[in-house]
């Protein structure tokens, strides 16, 4: 079962951070964060930008962990797939969450 977890964990984390940022957008817009100024930007923009980088950091951490001897699978097959999927999750994170930097408003 640990091998199956190794295979699915990276994309599962992507799904979690993707849902979290979408949820944060909903909470931020509902709470009016886009109307609260913070250093020339808005609280909403600041929160989304920080969340974007935290999300990427988490995905990088998953990739590093899956390559580390402690967590890496002894099976070359599982190790290969888990690392390919961790890279895919990182790319997916950067691509799908990029709008958090480019479109940080509630319109």
């Amino acid at each position: 079962m640990k091998e199956i977890v190794r295979i699915v964990i990276a994309m599962l984390v992507w799904l979690a951070v993707f849902s979290a940022l979408y949820g944060l957008e909903g909470v931020g817009c509902a709470a009016g964060w886009h109307r609260i100024p913070v250093n020339g930007a808005t609280l909403f923009q600041a929160a989304m930008t920080i969340a974007f980088f935290v999300a990427l950091l988490i995905l990088v951490a998953v990739l590093v962990a899956l390559r580390a001897p402690r967590f890496r699978s002894a099976s070359p097959f599982v190790a290969h797939i888990s690392i390919v999927l961790a890279v895919a999750a990182l790319i997916a994170g950067a691509w799908t969450l990029f709008p958090a930097l480019a479109l940080s408003h509630c319109a």
Partner: peptide
């Protein structure tokens, strides 16, 4: 909102 649309369009 546009940001939500962009998330899902990218995905």
């Amino acid at each position: 909102p546009h940001m939500g649309l962009a998330f899902f369009s990218a995905a």
